[in-house]
Design a protein around this nucleic acid. Sequence first.
DNA 1: AAATATACCTGACTGC
DNA 2: TGCAGTCAGGTATATT
Length: 267
Amino acid sequence: MPELPEVETTRRGIKPWIHHKEIIEIVVREKRLRWPIPSDIREKLINREIISVQRRAKYLLIETDIGSALIHLGMSGSLRVIKHNEPAGKHDHYDLILNNGMALRYRDPRRFGSLLWAKNPLNHKLLKQLGPEPLEEKFTGSYLHSKAKNRKITIKQFIMNAHIVVGVGNIYACEALYMSSIRPDKKCKYITLKQCDDLVKSIKFVLKKSIKSGGTTLKDFKNLDGAPGYFKQKLMIYDCKICKCGVKVKNIKLGGRSSFYCNVCQK
DNA sequence: AAATATACCTGACTGC
DNA sequence: TGCAGTCAGGTATATT
């Protein structure tokens, strides 16, 4: 489920409920996530105040005075704020129980997500090598163009590479390429500077728009009424049958991922 | 270094 | 209704 806008929406949704609260207990029901939940996670986090709730790429950073919990939602993870005694479901793998009667509960049927701990999260092995944030100013068309030079892969696989730019998942890669009229299977070396400018603008636009829409679901966190209820994004090309030009949408595999595009609108 | 293949999982859906 | 097969929005890691 989570692409960057969903992770950012989650961050904004949980922050008011957990910021400046103390973690008084951690319940781990299933430690076998992508990596095992570290056995010392309780001693690292218990009796610590949450002093900030940040995001880097698709990782959520729950910061305390001595280090941070590093949470990734994988393919199917979600976080909710619940009353601490709410019965856990099958895939509710852990709770961070807070000193306000609430708990941050993690659910993840596929268990591709993670809960790790790091003293300095930005120096953590998983975060250190990452490319720029897509919404940062230094992510520009000329940056992308300079990196794309001499690359043999397709432009879609390129923009989904977290060492180039973080947070561009399969759906938004398709959408951004459609918006900038570039075929997903176009080889990097044939992409012009102008196209990189357009593509970067499209990536920023589609992510911002989606974060804005995701924001409309924040009340779900406030209501604490179960499912996160992510906003069903209006998609222009992903999972679509017919392009707005009337032609049938193509769906090819690139690097094993479904890639939707219009043979007429994208060149 | 860069490209490609592989691995981790469950659940929803399709076609027989 | 059941069963096998396919697919899913991520990404680190091993292999070439």
